[in-house]
């Protein structure tokens, strides 16, 4: 037991080192550099730095040193918890990430929670009424909704709920420039703004857990131990929830953990539609601007997030499945 746990730890460590190296190398291998600002989108000013300014900035950010030296410096500062300065925003990467991260976690976590809950509820209804109208309706309905690209769903929701009905704001994460007297008022404002993005992200995710739980439930329901449970004369409620559900939840837990990274990717589109702050749009911007330090930082946080989610999934699986314990 002890030996395997140590092995696990080593596993995670090796993974992190590999991720660190890739995070460091890939942005720098992309063509272009952060100080190349030549062409511009419509409506934008032409800005090209003079050779002298360019050299000044390159040496200021240490980008004129050989790559291996930069890598060592990166590892050293990382060990001190220093992720460096963002080239684009002229601010510490940790500060920028710390500002964006809560929004993303809030969005992603709420959507995960909601889509999982809804998925389970619908899956249970479907599985109990397998092959009947209710099951068919749910199956077709949920799968079709999930097939609509998130941004399209987002735009239609915006049109319906924000423009025509006027129930929700169009963009942003809280009313700009307003100061709230109470924490509650602030909370309500934030939920008001987050409502549509969360619902859209939830809807585009719900079919995943729904299908998984439905299929496993259907499989579980045909198992011998279900017959045994019925033969013992256990009440239907206990059979359904304690015996069937518990077994059907196992693959779901793993799926949620694995999905975590993908969800952040999905959040990028939603963040764009609703101009919602978060890691997703920050990362897209950093990649386009070749903001190496910021990009590294975000990728690192995401990688650690996914590893953490895996770790938690491990723990929860142990709880749910006595065979692993």
């Amino acid at each position: 037991m002890f030996a395997t746990r140590r092995f696990r730890l080593l596993d995670y460590l090796v993974t992190i080192v590999v991720i660190l190296t890739i995070n460091f190398m890939v942005p720098r291998l992309m063509p272009g550099d952060p100080f190349l600002l030549v062409s511009a989108e419509a409506g934008e000013e032409f800005a090209v730095l003079s050779e002298r300014q360019r050299e000044y900035f390159m040496s200021y950010y240490g980008l004129d040193k050989p790559l291996h030296q930069q890598y060592l410096i990166y590892l050293q500062s990382l060990a001190r918890g220093d992720l460096g300065h963002s080239i684009q925003y002229r601010e510490e990467v940790t500060v920028i990430i710390a500002r964006a991260l809560p929004w993303t976690i809030f969005l992603v976590l709420s959507a995960t929670l909601l889509s999982t809950l809804l998925g389970i509820i619908f899956a249970v209804i479907s599985a109990w009424h397998r092959g009947k109208t209710r099951d068919n309706l749910l199956l077709v309905g949920l799968v079709s909704i999930s097939e609509i690209p998130g941004f399209l769903l987002g735009l239609s929701f915006l049109l319906l709920f924000s423009v025509y009905l006027g129930w929700f704001p169009l963009a942003g994460a809280s009313t700009p420039f307003v100061r709230f007297d109470s924490l509650l008022g602030k909370l309500i404002d934030i939920i008001h703004y987050a409502f549509l993005p969360i619902i859209v992200l939830t809807l585009s995710r719900v079919s995943g857990s729904y299908l998984l739980v439905r299929n496993t439930l259907i499989l579980v329901l045909t198992k011998d131990y279900m017959k045994t449970a019925r033969a013992k004369g256990l009440p239907e409620r206990v059979i359904r929830y304690r015996h069937a559900m518990r077994n059907a939840l196992l693959p779901l837990v793993n799926r949620i953990a694995l999905q975590f990274g993908g969800l952040v990717g999905g959040a990028v589109l939603i963040e764009n539609v609703f101009a919602y702050p978060g890691l997703g749009s920050l990362m897209a911007g950093a990649a386009l601007a070749r903001d190496y330090n910021l990009l590294q930082g975000i990728l690192l946080v995401l990688a650690v997030g996914v590893l953490l989610a895996n770790f938690m999934a491990d723990l929860v699986s142990r709880r749910l499945d006595p065979r692993i314990r």
Binding site: G32, D33, S39, A40, E44, E45
Partner: peptide, 25 residues
């Protein structure tokens, strides 16, 4: 390619024909 990739090839003269845009005229 994406904008910075194209810009790098362009500023280094690493192209045959290039379509590019910027303001400031």
């Amino acid at each position: 390619g994406d904008r910075l990739t194209v810009d790098e090839s362009w500023t280094e003269g690493n192209f045959e024909l290039n379509i590019n845009g910027h303001g400031g005229w």
